[in-house]
Amino acid sequence: MRTLTGREAVREALTEEMKRDEKVFLLGEDIGVYGGAFGVTAGMIDEFGEKRVRDTPISEAAIAGAAVGASLVGMRPVAEMMFMDFITIASDQIMNQGAKIHYMFGGQLNAPFVLRMPAGAAEAGAQHTQSLEALLYHIPGLKVVMPSTPYDLKGLLKTAIRDDNPVMFIEHKKGYGEKGEVPEEEYTIPFGKADIKREGKDVTIIATSHMVYKALNAAEELEKKGVDAEVLDPRTLVPLDMESIVKSVSKTGKVVIVHEAHRRGGIGGDIAARISDSDAFYYLEKPIKRVTGPNTPVPFSPVLESEFIPNEEKIIEAVLKITD
């Protein structure tokens, strides 16, 4: 099978959906001739023209608001926030407006737009590196997608564009360069279906976004130490595939949750609570462990940043604490 980078997979999903449905269009900062800050939309303006690949002013509230408004009147906008950190500037449009429209208007309107946002630490300091999925996860009305591999990025983005709800699509910057198999044939991936990225019987590592790669590396090392780890990638946080999580945890009896976002109020805490609330609780043999970014801003210095980002070593350490 051919391989694509994460960047190419996202671009292919956008391109295919724009060809399939003329209501789909892109808007965002520097997504036209520049090709987006991370090159995701490179060349698309040549293929689709500036009406459907719209460069915007640096106005995040207007970008998100225009996406909400256009979605109410028959279009299917896909807006790019240049960095996920910038959702804070657009937060009224995302959290008070887009997320609530279907509910507070009694189902009269729906807002089928997608907000794509590159997240994650990548040598840029405190305001261009955050993983803020927990903010979005908290808000009813939003769907939150956080893929890892090129295959998942493409299949889930196509589903996101076809979904009738606001979808927050979180892409990890380091995932843009990762390569993976992506079939030539058309496919989509349903929301709410976790993917077991590696089967194992001793411990369940639940990892999101780019942490999936680190969890897989850790699992390889753990195997050498005689620990057979299962790596579960939820792929979508809202909806969250608790069925697969419960099943895996019931099998292994041990859980390590890995995310790059800060620990306090991170989704790991909620996943742990949901496991405790479920039948899997009775199968737990050890405390649930979390490997996460600390409760600090993301620092710039490469030495400090790599201390911030969870890595294989920390995952292995956490696993061994509950499997030894």
């Binding site: 269009f25 009406k51 509230a61 207007a62 998100a64 608001g65 225009a66 996406a67 909400v68 408004g69 256009a70 979605s71 109410l72 009147v73 028959g74 279009m75 906008p77 009224d92 449009q93 008070n96 407006q97 429209i101 208007f105 309107l109």
Partner: peptide, 24 residues
């Protein structure tokens, strides 16, 4: 397209709706 509890919150949405009308 509805009332809005956030002062000014509806303005970008109206502009988005106008964009949709223009594009269609």
């Amino acid at each position: 397209l509805g009332a809005n509890g956030i002062v000014g919150g509806g303005i970008p949405i109206a502009v988005g709706a106008a964009l949709a009308m223009d594009m269609q």
